[in-house]
Design a protein around this nucleic acid. Structure first.
Ligand SMILES: [Mn+2]
Ligand SMILES: [Mn+2]
Ligand SMILES: [Zn+2]
Ligand SMILES: [Zn+2]
Lengths: 143, 143
DNA sequence: ATGTTTATTGTAATGATAACAAATCTTTAA
DNA sequence: TTAAAGATTTGTTATCATTACAATAAACAT
């Protein structure tokens, strides 16, 4: 997957004005190496074994800080779960209603807010909801 | 705004296979006459004076039923609040970070999920986040 | 070294939604 | 008409993600 070094991670944090603590490096690394749009809880559960003293509050604090510093973006694709993405460039997402995975779609151009509306858009989210290929196959198998 | 009659409301509910109780008519009417993408709580607070015995659980149940019967759609534009829309046709939304209003944008064509992805999209949400004209004016005034 | 700022932690609070079971209304059919 | 069955509504309680808060610990500066 991603082959970013710890060096680069630390650099990126410093550039954004975020002092690179162990915990922050761990969270940012996880996001860089796992492009699965994880929730705060998923990140916490995944890091816990390696960082036994890590607190869930720290994960929340860290993610909020990263979002404020524009290091990551929030993907609010479904209510009740905030997901996070290291890729801050515009791209669309697809959520499968069966496996609940969120898939990146990079080939869709960013829709533009019509200028005559006088609305100034600062970010755009394009979300598709449906069923992925694998899950479709499994469902057809059953019937 | 909308000038739909109670007759039409009842008809629409029956057509969808929903028996038109007082509460369901009230909720559906509210959505038809107030295109403000309200949350369950906003609907409950708004109807309470006229329907003093109305329960919040009924509002939640009713909205869930309406969504299942495709009478309304969910607008998950921000985490922590589900909003509802009687307009089930595709259209984009704009949320202002100052006044928190959600504005309809009808002139943007529905983006399509690329066919080569093998993903079958059943619905699409296009959300813009930024600042509306009014709020922009107010902020400039202050500085 | 010592005081000051920053980061982390654990616990408690919040707030939206769902689960549940009792109560009431509506429909069915004897 | 009436009584059982089914559907709907209601109030209370539980759940779960997130935030608030205050205490501890670490990093930094004098
Ligand atoms: Mn993504
Ligand atoms: Mn709308
Ligand atoms: Zn799937
Ligand atoms: Zn505004």
């Amino acid at each position: 997957m991603a082959d970013i070094t710890k060096q680069k991670i630390v650099e990126q944090l410093k550039e954004a004005g975020v002092s690179p603590s162990e915990q922050r490096i761990a969270v940012f690394s996880f996001l860089h190496h796992n492009h699965i749009h994880p929730t705060a809880d998923t990140i916490y559960q995944s890091l816990s074994p390696d960082y036994p003293t890590l607190s869930k509050t720290t994960v929340y604090n860290t993610l909020k800080l990263f979002v404020a510093k524009r290091l990551i973006q929030v993907v609010a694709i479904e209510d009740g779960e905030l997901r996070f993405d290291v890729n801050t460039d515009f791209h669309a997402h697809f959520k499968c209603r069966e496996c609940l995975e969120v898939i990146d779609l990079f080939d869709i151009p960013e829709p533009q807010c019509p200028t005559e509306t006088q609305l100034i858009a600062e970010s755009t989210q394009l979300n598709f909801y449906g069923i992925c290929d694998q899950c479709k196959g499994k469902l057809e198998e059953q019937s």
